[in-house]
Design a protein around this nucleic acid. Structure first.
Lengths: 211, 211
DNA sequence: CTAACGTTTGTCCAATCGGTCAAAATTTGC
DNA sequence: GCAAATTTTGACCGATTGGACAAACGTTAG
């Protein structure tokens, strides 16, 4: 029987095996990119044969597509939480912290996303121009409100969001470089706490000393 | 005759054709990654046949290796220029500006590098732990001196360098996302000037308003 | 002219790839 | 318990890939 993504009816085994495959595919895709990964690799990581895997996902691209669809929701969750209710600086600090925690706890997801964007986002371009842009525009308005109220320094809200993405995801996407440069001593688990301390200071106070 | 990378003797044609191939390979590799690129693609982009290309570079990996070796030097040039002679804040501002200009003018080089790091830097790991680490450690010392002298706020110099890399290279590596989010109006050529203004303010003053 | 050298091409090959298919093995519904 | 449905497997296929190779093509020095 066909097991397409549009078929809602799933047996227990289908549910389990599909999860197993997606987990394995996340591991493989995030490490080698889409074209650099083979169905055999994913099948082996999932502990099944290639034809068996293809019974659950008809095409390699279906796996990737399912993975990306799920990813985007969880990936944007921290930004969605950015809200108008609290103190602006506290809100932003919380957003930076949450994004950094995601880089620490879900580096494979970050790399999968980075891979897709690096290749020109051929599979998720509509989502970027639609859902993502809408969300960012909305949050940029919130931030603009804070600026008008004098709660934070006036600057470009879009580029502010970009800089938070860039600095936090850097610790997932460029992890090997970060660890190589920090060396064995400072490159251990403590690097994320060091990063958190640094980023908080950077975004709040910048580098210019208070005279 | 063999034309390996260790052969210093090159005819005029060899010099020219090798450059042509490297330029084409940069275009292809940066867009599709190493495994996502084929020799045929590179050969076509260079305007020659596949066997002809393989006459100048014996293996696909030789092209990539030559490209990466050249890249690292030019890529680290801005950091090398960071010097102790000028005013610290001016020096840092200049470094950020130069890095952002490189993201604008050499996005393919940035993406090629990002691709390599994302895949775990399998081909340049020794360079990261050696040359790169040495350079960063050296510049971190310079920055530490500025902090001791009270010229800039005390913080972690390594993570400061990471944040400059992340924020500037973001505009090359995640270009499609930046343009998608900014939309047709603000996503044009002016986005780099907006970014430059924003980053200068972020790194100098942060977000906390001067009361 | 021609021999030596550098360059280019067409043809070919083995390996790997994504994907198919029929048959076997297993699970499930009654 | 048994038939139907689902799951798993081994064998296979055509396309693409990186690369080898010898023959042909140019170019130039004597």
């Amino acid at each position: 029987m066909s097991v397409g993504t549009e078929a809602p009816r799933r047996t227990r085994i289908q549910q389990e095996k599909r999860e197993l495959i997606l987990e394995a595919a996340l591991e493989v895709f995030s490490a080698h990119g889409f074209r650099g990964s083979t169905i055999d690799q994913i099948a082996e990581a999932a502990g099944m044969s290639k034809p068996n895997l293809l019974y659950y996902f008809r095409r390699k691209e279906d796996i990737h597509e399912t993975l990306m669809q799920r990813l985007l929701d969880t990936w944007l969750a921290p930004l969605r939480e950015l809200d108008d209710i609290g103190d602006p600086l506290t809100e932003l600090r919380g957003y930076i912290r949450r994004k950094l925690e995601m880089a620490r706890d879900f580096p494979r997801e970050s790399r999968l996303f980075a891979n897709e964007i690096l290749q020109g986002a051929p599979r998720i371009m509509p989502l970027l121009e639609g859902e993502l842009k809408t969300l960012v525009d909305e949050k940029a308005s919130v931030i603009k409100g804070w600026m008008r109220a004098g709660k934070i320094t006036r600057t470009d809200p879009w580029h502010l969001i970009f800089s938070i993405w860039a600095t936090t995801q850097h610790y997932a996407d460029f992890d090997v470089q970060v660890r190589a440069v920090l060396g064995p001593n400072r490159g251990g688990e403590g690097r994320f706490e060091d990063a958190a301390r640094f980023l908080e200071q950077l975004f709040l106070d910048g580098l210019k000393p208070k005279t």
